[in-house]
């Protein structure tokens, strides 16, 4: 039997310095010349789940309580839960060891259907406002919070995790088919702010400091 190899739809024109084989994925931990930020990190290998149930109030995925209000999110134990509407919650695995996907039929693994990137560092919102008219800084909202809307004209889920100066950052997911052009668009918009591709290690360091 041949080994399965999974590829992210996100490709950076940067030279990897450190790689790690994780499951069927080849994960880049660090790129050459990551610079001072802001950074763009490919997290497509991280598990994403869609939880759909008419009775979300009784569900506690990974022991975490789902926010009651749509567009609110919660970050606990390396898991990000985003309440999408009355019956749906998206779940992103951001940090820690590989997770076991719950066996209940309400959970759908959407990891390979979407791309998943993080944009963080100072002036991240300046990059974002070139690509979307949504207010990701959302001064009157409590972080983390979810936006479902267009980013670079593509329907996305975007979660603002922090808006504290150097720690500012968002994670973004959209259909896999848009991957290449979405990344080109983000890097082009971020060029004037010094946006560079970075490896997963930099993301892990950022998320652990939030």
């Amino acid at each position: 039997m041949k080994d399965i190899k999974r590829y992210s739809a996100v490709e950076f024109k940067a030279t990897p310095l450190k790689n790690q084989k994780r499951g069927d994925w080849d994960v880049v931990l660090e790129y050459h010349g990551e610079g001072e930020g802001p950074w763009l990190v490919d997290l497509s290998h991280r598990t994403r789940l869609d939880l759909q149930s008419s009775d979300l109030a009784t569900k506690k995925p990974f022991g975490i309580t789902i926010p009651e209000t749509p567009c609110r999110s919660v970050l606990e134990k390396g898991m990000l839960l985003n309440r999408m509407n009355r019956i749906q919650t998206s779940i992103y695995h951001l940090d820690g060891e590989t997770i076991d996907i719950p066996e209940e039929k309400e959970y759908t693994d959407v990891t390979e259907a979407t791309i998943f990137v993080a944009i963080f560092g100072s002036r991240v919102f300046s990059v974002c406002e070139k690509l979307s008219n949504l207010d990701f800084a959302g001064e009157n909202k409590q972080t983390p919070f979810l936006f479902q809307g267009p980013f670079s004209h593509v329907p996305c889920q975007i979660v603002t995790l922090s808006r504290e100066a150097e720690k500012s950052g968002v994670v973004l997911t959209c259909s896999r088919g848009y991957g290449k052009h979405m990344i080109d668009g983000i890097l082009h918009a971020g060029e004037e702010f010094g946006l560079t591709p970075a490896g997963e290690a930099r993301f892990t360091s950022w998320i652990n400091n939030l």
Partner: peptide
């Protein structure tokens, strides 16, 4: 229909 957003 919120086509580019939540799908409601």
């Amino acid at each position: 229909f919120h086509r580019d957003g939540c799908g409601s």
